[in-house]
Design a protein around this nucleic acid. Structure first.
Length: 152
DNA sequence: GCCAACGTTGGC
DNA sequence: GCCAACGTTGGC
């Protein structure tokens, strides 16, 4: 069964436009266990992802991506020079995982956090309750409600 | 740039 | 295993 997700990125670091240019990217640098578990254990090929711009003006959903490669060890955790280096991780026992996602489309307009908050169908969204989780599941209903807002 | 929220670390 | 200190996220 297909799952739906929301993944956050600061557009200054990596935006939906960067993904459009690259077509595919690996989602490295996640150093939160819950987010890690979702990527390692639950994400499936073909799952759709809401690409969310955090720390942006305004923050909101900017586009759609899809999972093209399921969880595999995040090599940046092993690279001393990388800012995501984690000395506790090793090749034999990787702690951190990443997935590959591909560009699907950019929304015709950014659907801002403010609008998401105002939509009663989204009141249970994790995004609105637990602000700090960078990879999070979204229900099919929530996903579709957000897509429907694109043409409002 | 501030700071609240909150996940993680480490001393005990 | 508790919890204070610390670091990071992310909205404003």
């Amino acid at each position: 069964m297909k799952n739906y997700w929301l993944m956050k990125s600061e557009p200054g670091a990596y935006s939906i436009d960067d993904l459009e240019k690259d077509t595919v990217t690996f989602w490295d640098g996640v150093r939160n266990f819950q987010a890690r578990n979702f990527m390692r254990d639950t994400m499936q090929q073909g799952d759709l992802v809401l690409f969310y711009h955090s720390n942006a003006k305004p923050p909101g959903v900017a586009g759609i991506a899809k999972v093209v490669k399921t969880g595999y060890p995040d090599s940046t955790a092993l690279d001393k020079k990388n800012k995501h280096f984690d000395p506790k991780s090793s090749k034999e026992k990787p702690i951190w995982y990443m997935v590959d996602i591909a560009f699907v489309k950019k929304l015709k307009r950014l659907i801002s956090l403010d609008e998401l908050k105002k939509n009663p169908d989204l009141k249970n969204m994790i995004l609105l309750k637990r602000s700090r989780l960078s990879v999070q599941p979204v229900t099919k209903q929530e996903f579709e409600a957000i897509i429907a807002m694109e043409s409002l």
